[in-house]
Design a protein around this nucleic acid. Sequence first.
DNA 1: AGCACGCCGACT
DNA 2: GTCGGCGTGCTC
Length: 715
Amino acid sequence: MSSENGQRDGGAQDAPPEQLALIRDSVRKAKVPRAKPRTWRGAALAKDLPVARVLVDKGVLHLDRYFDYAVPEELDADAQPGVRVRVRFGAGRHRVREGRREGGGLIDGFLVERLAESDYPGPLAALAQVVSPEPVLDGELLGLARAVADRYAGSLADVLQLAVPPRNARAEKRPSPAPLPPPPAPLPGSWERYEQGPAFLEALASNGAPRAVWSALPGPEWSEELARAVAATLASGRGALAVLPDGRAVARADAALTALLGEGRHAVLTADAGPEKRYAQWLAVRRGSVRAVIGTRAAMFAPVRDLGLVAVWDDGDDSHSEQHAPQPHAREVLLLRAAQDRCAFLLGGWSCTVEAAQLVETGWARPLVATRERVRAAAPLVRTVGDQDLARDEAARAARLPTLAWQAVREGLRHGPVLVQVPRRGYVPRMACAGCRAPARCRHCSGPLEAQGSDDLRCGWCGRGESGWHCPECGGFRLRAQVVGARRTAEELGRAFPAVPVRTSGREHVLDTVPGTPALVVSTPGAEPVAEGGYAAALLLDGWAMVGRPDLRSGEDALRRWIGAAALVRPQPAGGTVVVVAEPTLRPVQALVRWDPAGHAVRELAERAELGFPPVSRMAAVSGPGETVAGFLRAVDLPARAEILGPVPLPVTAAGRPRRPGAPPPGEQWDRALVRVPPGHGAALATALKAAQAARMAKGGGDPVWVRIDPLDIG
DNA sequence: AGCACGCCGACT
DNA sequence: GTCGGCGTGCTC
């Protein structure tokens, strides 16, 4: 067909094209402030509320607003707020062919609202189709999506893509089960171990909205405690939502909830269910058949009816951070939900993030903790092996493992399984002096040196190569790769105890549980199986991986990984022992020895406040090709107290290495600037960045920049 | 992103 | 006159 416009191409049809042009012109000139809905075809429209406000499902920022469409009479009944619709969306004057308006293509959208009139001065196009009469987007979910989009400088459509699963007709056709009446309030159970535990449950059960940061005692009881919190909320007649970092944690919470409440009262939303099952579960929640939800991060948007409690377990795990734009974090989304719905909030874990500590420090949440005596009685004995011990330890030089560690493993294996935590494969081997074990650092920027090929060294921060390294501490010239050393150590341990089975758990193959019989269990952080009756001992060989990491959170992360392993070990009174190979002077090591992750987080928080780092200040990262970033920074109208750090060159992505969102394509040199604002100016920062990005896209201006609120790897 | 509009120079 | 080049701006 011709690419001509309507005036010339529409000859043989209902409305003569000249007339169309005339209508259009008169509409333009008249500048009617409140247009009565008219369509080009003049089809019959709904008598009541003939205008549909539609959110067009395109993630583009400059289209992040509503568009009004006319509601044809035949779609009147189905075109209710919240339903999925299809509309024509395209540019400029619309072609007319066989009497139909054929603007751009058909695209998906959500009907947000029905109105009596539109404030759009032009004639409205008609809704093309109501995809299904099932309302999937109510005002509450829309409000949440709006808040998340604003918080993260993203578009509403992008957030809705995360919040509303794709439709599945078969799942939609099946009726959801009838809702069950509220269960009775549960007994406090092991919540008795926490000073405010029973009171917290009671508040939930009696319609209260307590907010707590929960320092969970080590051991397996947490899942049952979480289940009791959910059950108490259900007992009040309200709904509850808990988000956990991975499938294994969800499975534990699922088992605990089923044991406490039986089947049918909760839904499990995880990514590994198929699309039909997933949508069916989601619909059961949305329709109010199921009042409680547990799941991984996608569940953070679950449309739970009359939400009474939101809970996050282990918020330091980075799987809580969504990979898709605008990359919201489950903790932050649930904070927004707690504020919007005025519901209870529970942030729990064995460890403690700086963000959690901040919630307590600001008084927004209360600590939910056990007494020191209880903590000491529940935690294993922790011992350290630092450089000085290693240097003094002749046996360690020969056998690559300190005497203390051997003793702990040997003694542990007499009573049960022993866990050996080794760094994850794929960590770039960090180098250290073979003689004195001082980490090998870049002479220009003090970044960690990484092994490239056989002999090549390169700085992990500035990327500069290094030849002719020598140790500034002891003058040695030989290097060893610490991480590889740890793995080999684990293998050697296996050979040293030939009568004991060796099991491994890691990324490829994750073990869920191991029996309580003597065995060496070698695992990467986060993949540790639970041992029946707890491990007799654990050996943590991950200490070096922490030292070289440039990240602001490296201390917190290391402590979290160690605690995650050590919490699976029997309590000290039952003989549980942990040996960590790391400098005892380091702050996270001391926190592990004292079993005080909350105290560690409070000290980190104070330091971040002093340095003006998140979460005390709000930060955003802007990355892209150098000239593009510079141009963006010139154009953006930042809030008055914003401060730009950098830009500095980003490390080049090595070919073959997985590329994270926001990282440059292999071989390209990108810059990154950090923008920071003082507390309370986060919203203004997000708005400014979003506006600049939108203006940039609308101008069709060349390369896009990456904008990321709360960047993970800074420092 | 598309895609149509419009204002300017060469051509039947 | 009118066809078509690309620069600009809009999408209900």
